[in-house]
Design a protein around this nucleic acid. Structure first.
Lengths: 311, 311
DNA sequence: GGGAACAATGTCATTTCGGCCAAACCATGC
DNA sequence: GCATGGTTTGGCCGAAATGACATTGTTCCC
């Protein structure tokens, strides 16, 4: 049986919100030809400009029945008036699984599809969303949420995760797995956590430890065992570790390593100190230690990074 | 100074390859208005169909100078003939940073821009690529690679990582960091590694431990400390742990936990055994242990998953 | 105001992880 | 044959992470 999947866009939509699911379903379809029929819809159809300026072609909103309708997000959702047509349409169209990416949840909420259900949206909008739709049980911590047949997802790229989950439900774990492997970069360790996970992760949402982070950055050259950090945060070591992982998602030791690496990398790329000096200043002590840490995190030793940065 | 960024597409291109970088630069531009001028180019311009069927609007290939040109990948690269025009164009156009996503590396390689340089491409194409372009030093393990001013990236979503690195080079770590935060789902732990990292990661490229994995799956109900696994693999514990992390990217204990979770999840969703029974069968022993493991990994307890699966 | 449920914090024990060193193994050249 | 240098393997140890459990504090309901 072929499932009709519709991705809904509108002027000012976020390109990735739509492209992620489209690609995911496309690749799943490659594994199971005939499993999906995918279309891109927009009020009125035609070329629709995304917030990035790039335009995508769409067909007009049409009658169902659809298996899945995926509302993309984007700045357009800030003025819901322009989305009236979509909201009216989604209320009446025949669909088994309504879903949204990112701020697309506003459309579903406005249409009343989320009342009494658990849902999520982009983290930068949670306060506003919660105020506007008190009937929706908002859970900002999840990447995506399924409540019955209504699915919502958070951050922009979360649309990909959402789609993979939909695919898994439809076609089973096997297909979902190969699709994930095709899409997501082969998650090997050497390149590992892209260089940016360090940038993204640390900080935590309440900012409870941001002072501590600053303090760490200032004391990188000293040894920083868990006890020392706990002392600085005025907690018991065990409890500190617990709170820290809960807040930041990383264990203390790993976080320190991340900060050391980040500092060392910028020092290596932009500064002129010899590598040994950098190693000492960032607390790696032994330059050999640093070399290996670099290999693990960036896939190449410090020297290579410096050369690359200098052209 | 405004940098001209061009994303190049062609019939059969992979939508995400283009959309990822476009969104990344768009958001960076929001942080630093005027930093980038982004355009989408294709031979002849007009509406270009991606391999997913969705069409994107493009301008014709134009003269530079460009700061950055990003060639997207896609099935289209399998028959390079259709890409002749792009290859001819990229050879002569004025550009500071040529870059490619995924199989877009074929275009750069064909144009000779990668000769003698280190580069990467999608992992499913590495053999073919290496055979075809022996002059290119292919390193398939990296997410993206910079050699001088030429950048290439692997898997489809790696285009996002690549773009973030470009942005960091241009506008500094701060902007790159906020862009990453906007784009990537706020990488919190509760939902943490999307549910799919388990599916993607394990296995390892040489398959050295796949027998062991099967064995583990068959013995989940027993306690599985590192020693036991090492014994099964006929290695010393220390050496086993080392080899295992090198191969799979995860530590043994974590991998076992992943396998337990995966097994438990399907048992909970598709089977009818009471939760306690599942906990025992999958080696969690204490149901409370399993409950917490579920919360950590999936953000909701087993009960909720079962309810969700049953509609 | 009493008390029960629950969360936050602390202590202790166990397991896992990662660094370091030494021995074994391997290839190569003399 | 035997030195040499490099890589792989194994053992050991300290630090970190995790889990179990006790204790305190807090809230909320009666």
């Amino acid at each position: 049986m072929t499932r009709r999947i519709a991705v809904v866009i509108f002027p000012g939509f976020q390109l990735l919100d739509a492209a992620g699911p489209l690609s995911a379903f496309e690749i799943a379809e490659r594994h199971r030809p005939g499993a999906y029929a995918i279309s891109v819809l927009a009020p009125g159809g035609g070329d629709v400009a995304s917030s990035s300026g790039a335009r995508m072609a769409a067909e007009p909103l049409s009658d169902g029945p659809f298996d899945t309708i995926l509302i993309s997000g984007g700045d357009g959702t800030r003025s819901l008036d322009e989305l009236r047509e979509i909201i009216r349409w989604i209320r009446h169209v025949e669909v088994r699984r309504p879903a949204s990416v990112c701020s697309g949840a506003y459309v579903l909420a406005e249409a009343g599809l989320l009342d009494g259900r658990r849902a999520t949206t982009h983290w930068s909008r949670t306060d506003d969303f919660a105020r506007r739709y008190p009937k929706v049980k908002l859970d900002a911590d999840r990447i995506f949420i399924r409540d019955g047949d209504v699915w919502t997802s958070g951050g922009i790229t979360a649309g990909i995760d959402l789609s993979l989950a939909l695919i898994e439900e439809d076609l089973g774990t096997g297909v979902a797995r190969s699709t994930a492997q095709q899409l997501v970069v082969h998650q090997r360790r050497p390149g590992g956590q892209s260089q940016f996970s360090a940038l993204v992760e640390l900080g935590g949402r309440t900012g409870r430890f941001s002072d501590l982070m600053d303090w760490i950055r200032d004391h990188l050259s000293e040894p920083l065992p868990v006890e020392r950090l706990a002392e600085q945060a005025a907690m018991s070591p065990r409890n500190f570790a617990r709170a820290f992982t809960a807040e930041t998602g990383t264990t203390p030791a790993k976080a320190v390593e991340r900060l050391r690496l980040e500092a060392a990398r910028t020092a290596v790329e932009t500064g002129h100190d010899p590598i040994d000096r950098v190693a000492e200043a960032t607390g790696f002590g032994d330059p050999e230690r640093m070399r290996r840490a670099f290999l693990r995190a960036f896939g190449q030793p410090a020297q290579a990074l410096r050369r690359a940065a200098r052209h």
